[in-house]
Simulated assay, not measured.
Amino acid sequence: MSDIDATKAAKLQAETDLLAARVRHLYEGDPDGRQAGDIKPSRFRPQYRALSDEEKALHDQIKAKAAELETLFEQARDLRYPPVDLRDFSGITAADVQAGGIEFLEGAAFVGATLGTDYFSEGMKALELSVMWTVKGLTA
Score class of each variant (00 low, 15 high):
residue 117 T to Y: 06
residue 63 K to R: 14
residue 137 G to H: 09
residue 101 G to A: 06
residue 89 F to C: 01
residue 109 A to C: 05
residue 119 Y to Q: 12
residue 73 F to I: 14
residue 7 T to G: 00
residue 38 D to T: 08
residue 68 E to V: 14
residue 85 D to M: 07
residue 128 E to R: 15
residue 6 A to R: 09
residue 89 F to G: 13
residue 127 L to S: 05
residue 75 Q to A: 14
residue 101 G to N: 07
residue 15 E to D: 11
residue 140 A to F: 11
residue 88 D to M: 08
residue 69 L to C: 11
residue 64 A to T: 13
residue 46 P to A: 00
residue 35 Q to I: 00
residue 135 V to I: 15
residue 72 L to G: 01
residue 102 I to K: 02
residue 13 Q to K: 15
residue 40 K to I: 10
residue 138 L to W: 12
residue 106 E to A: 14
residue 62 I to L: 15
residue 56 K to G: 01
residue 17 D to T: 00
residue 11 K to H: 07
residue 18 L to D: 04
residue 15 E to A: 07
residue 94 A to D: 09
residue 13 Q to I: 00
residue 55 E to R: 08
residue 112 G to P: 00
residue 14 A to K: 08
residue 139 T to M: 08
residue 31 P to D: 04
residue 62 I to W: 09
residue 91 G to L: 08
residue 105 L to A: 03
residue 51 L to H: 06
residue 38 D to Q: 05
residue 19 L to K: 05
residue 83 P to T: 06
residue 117 T to A: 03
residue 42 S to R: 10
residue 134 T to D: 02
residue 19 L to Q: 02
residue 45 R to A: 13
residue 112 G to M: 10
residue 89 F to D: 03
residue 71 T to P: 01
residue 95 A to M: 07
residue 50 A to S: 09
residue 79 L to Q: 01
residue 28 E to H: 11
residue 73 F to M: 12
residue 86 L to Q: 12
residue 60 D to Y: 04
residue 50 A to Q: 11
residue 48 Y to T: 03
residue 73 F to D: 03
residue 57 A to D: 10
residue 51 L to V: 01
residue 44 F to S: 13
residue 85 D to A: 14
residue 112 G to T: 03
residue 45 R to Y: 02
residue 31 P to A: 08
residue 51 L to K: 11
residue 138 L to G: 11
residue 68 E to N: 13
residue 59 H to Q: 13
residue 71 T to F: 14
residue 27 Y to L: 06
residue 5 D to P: 00
residue 116 G to Q: 08
residue 92 I to K: 12
residue 84 V to N: 02
residue 79 L to I: 04
residue 91 G to P: 07
residue 81 Y to F: 15
residue 85 D to W: 08
residue 90 S to G: 05
residue 96 D to A: 05
residue 139 T to I: 03
residue 61 Q to N: 07
residue 96 D to E: 09
residue 107 G to L: 09
residue 99 A to T: 09
residue 133 W to D: 07
residue 125 K to A: 15
residue 78 D to E: 15
residue 68 E to H: 10
residue 19 L to W: 05
residue 121 S to D: 11
residue 5 D to L: 01
residue 14 A to D: 03
residue 52 S to N: 04
residue 43 R to E: 12
residue 31 P to S: 05
residue 75 Q to C: 05
